[in-house]
């Protein structure tokens, strides 16, 4: 009896392993293409063993024009917007988490509603509006919009993380006469490091990969972040230089993959947005 149960369990495990490996292989094919092509001197569009290893593709793209300027632009845009998002979210989360008010519930519902609005849909009016108020084609305009679009989700996440920090410590600080901002900065924030880093990394990663917002709001090629410039590159040269395109994709994607690894490790692998949007 025991043996049939355990052999059945083993059979189920084998079946599950096989199924998962098949899916993993299918998902891995496009990833394999980009990795192999980036070191292949004669890359084409299909997955194949490279004809010899080369770093020539990386050499060719690691120039100010193709890589460094767009990545720097990405860093300025996404870094600036992330900073703004996180500061605003921390400040906003504090009263929402700590003080009871009749307005908390409607405010949070509005925030949650806003998290799921299709931002894509408002880009045309945002463009028209930015032309009117002279924010079009400016880095600060794009940063402000990026921050606003990411803010609802950041506030929601941050408030949930802050709810997890016990209130007793602050109450002691309040009786000692500490102000709201003081207790936020000295007591709450140090205790929610993982929460703040998750919101920071998540916001940054979302913006780093975002194509449509800078595509609409920026016009000058010098200002374009990597998400848009890669598209130009692809349109003009990538049609033939697949190896270079792959190398650029690798360079551009690596930071977000590393950042993701960082937070998923930090939270013991349990960071699924599933935790944030659990239903």
């Amino acid at each position: 009896m025991a043996r049939t149960v355990s052999s059945r369990r083993l059979g189920r495990r084998l079946a599950a392993d096989t199924g998962l490996l098949a899916v993993a292989a299918a998902f891995a094919l496009p990833l394999a293409w980009v990795l192999l092509s980036s070191v292949d001197p004669h890359a084409d569009l299909r997955v194949k063993a490279p004809d010899g290893l080369t770093l020539g593709n990386f050499d060719a793209i690691l120039t100010p024009d193709i890589t460094f300027t767009p990545l720097l632009n990405s860093l300025v845009l996404c870094g600036g917007a992330t900073l703004l998002t996180v500061v605003c979210a921390v400040l906003a989360a504090y009263p929402l988490s700590r003080f009871r008010s009749r307005l908390n519930r409607p405010f949070l519902l509005t925030i949650l509603f806003a998290t799921s609005l299709p931002i894509t849909a408002i880009m045309v009016p945002v463009y028209a509006l930015f032309v009117r108020v002279d924010l079009i084609d400016t880095a600060h305009g794009t940063i402000l919009f990026f921050a606003a679009s990411q803010l609802p989700f950041a506030i929601w996440l941050m408030k949930n993380f802050m709810d997890g920090v016990p209130k007793e410590l602050e109450e002691a600080a309040w009786t000692d006469g500490a102000s709201t901002l003081q207790s936020l900065a000295r007591i709450v924030l140090p205790l929610m490091g993982p929460g703040v880093s998750v919101v920071t990394v998540f916001s940054f990663v979302m913006m780093w990969g975002n194509f449509f917002v800078p595509f609409m709001l920026l016009l000058t090629p010098d200002q374009m972040p990597a998400s848009v410039s890669i598209n130009e590159f692809f349109g003009n040269r990538g049609m033939v230089a697949y190896g270079q395109l792959a190398a650029f994709s690798v360079v551009y994607s690596t930071p977000v993959i590393l950042l993701y690894l960082l937070i998923s490790r930090r939270l013991g692998g349990g960071f699924a947005l599933g935790g944030a949007v659990k239903g």
Binding site: L21, V23, L31, W33, G209, F211, V228, V256
Partner: peptide
């Protein structure tokens, strides 16, 4: 039900596809 190494590998590959920037995913 799967064994741990297979689970980790599959999860890693699928999540990588998700974390990649949208435009890169488009090229791939």
């Amino acid at each position: 039900r799967a064994s741990k190494p297979v689970r980790t590998l599959t999860g890693g590959v699928v999540v990588t596809a998700w974390v990649l920037p949208e435009v890169v995913a488009g090229f791939l």
